[in-house]
Amino acid sequence: MKNDQTITVIDTSPPRRLRLPVAGMVGAGIIGFWILIAIIGPYIAPHEVGALVDDDLFGHMRWSLPLGSDYLGRDVLSRILVGARYSIGAAGAATFLAILMGGTLGMLAAVSRGAIDMALSRFFDALISIPSKMSALVVIAALGSSIPVLISTAAVIYTPGAFRIWRALAVNVNELDFVEVARARGEGTHYLIREEILPNIAGPVLTDFGLRFVFAVLLLSSLSFLGLGVQPPNADWGSLVRENIDGLAGGAPAVVMPAAAIATLTIGVSLLIDNLPGRWSSTGEH
């Protein structure tokens, strides 16, 4: 499913002030909120993550424990606040790395054309044919699960997709006459990428970052849910859902709340990128 059906829109109008519809504003607000939590979460958490604070298991919501307690009687709010770091941080880092590798190589392929482009494109086309969850499972089977392994695995998985989109965007710009003028002037590859290509694909590329970030959050939380992601005693939101799954029958906040956290984060990002003006959009769908 991570095969990007790229529908590339290039608009060469200048950077103007971004005008967002309400839905986009809501999305941006949610993202801002969660990023803030990821940074300050551990400092504002009312309890220690591991501390047993409730005698009840799957305790209900009340003033002292606003989001109730989990299957061991720990504070769910604190665990979500601290878990934000793993969910957002790991996915963000993986996305960043994927875009750094895929994006750079994609632009390089577009500007170099010819054999380099051919070789890189074929290589990433082949890589993309391994379903993302498959590659993740294989690597985790071989290396075990740790945060660096998870981040680098997710990064490698999303590199081919980033490569494809960045290359498609850069190829469109690369065909424009101003790049041809720069080439005729004698400019080198580095200048062409930095000055001519990059500033003109910045908008779509940010959208692509958002999209890929959503994929990464979904993948990492799914892995955690399967027990193959972040390992105890650390816990991201996916692990929180997994460890409290027994509370599902009773509708315990311990399982509902982390799930809601994931949903608000990913829907927030989707809302924002769905509502960006046309010239920012990079993809139809994933």
Partner: peptide
């Protein structure tokens, strides 16, 4: 050598980098 031959294209729109 490059300097002495310059080129001007048909599409004035696409011949200027819109971000600069």
């Amino acid at each position: 050598q490059l300097r002495r031959i310059q080129i001007v294209f048909q599409m004035a729109d696409t011949a200027l980098n819109p971000a600069r």
